[in-house]
Amino acid sequence: MRTLSKSNSDTLTVIVDLLIPKKGSLPSPSDINVVEHIDDTISDAPQLMRLFVEGLRDINDKDFLSLQEKEQIDLLQKYECSNSLFFAELIRHTYNGYYTNPIVVRAIGMTGHPPQPKGYNLEQGNNFKLLEKVRERGQIWRNP
């Protein structure tokens, strides 16, 4: 970790896995290094770093890791209201790390490769023929 302490990193690992639970072929964020992604991101952004370090310290102060899962979720829900700025950034960077990971992208049904250079095959579609009916309805532009 470049920025996060061991205790903050451990806490964040539990939190991201509560935000996006593992399900079927969909991995948990900690399985695919989302915490490392967040650590990298905040290491290059001083304001964001402060927000995360302070936010996680605050959560740690509540003895977060020793709580039962339901209690952890309750605490996060309270946090979502009381520290909405930190929580919004926590969600954003967790989702950023998760949904740009090729393992997740494949698991949700895409090819897993980025848009370029391969692109996609797009069906032309069958409905251009319907334009004839639009034409038949006649001019709708207003001639001044």
Partner: peptide, 19 residues
């Protein structure tokens, strides 16, 4: 190209008879 999505939505316009 319209693709599946374009086919879907153009049916909606067609049903209403809208441009």
């Amino acid at each position: 190209g319209l693709g599946k999505l374009g086919d879907k939505i153009t049916h909606g316009f067609d049903k209403l008879g809208w441009h």
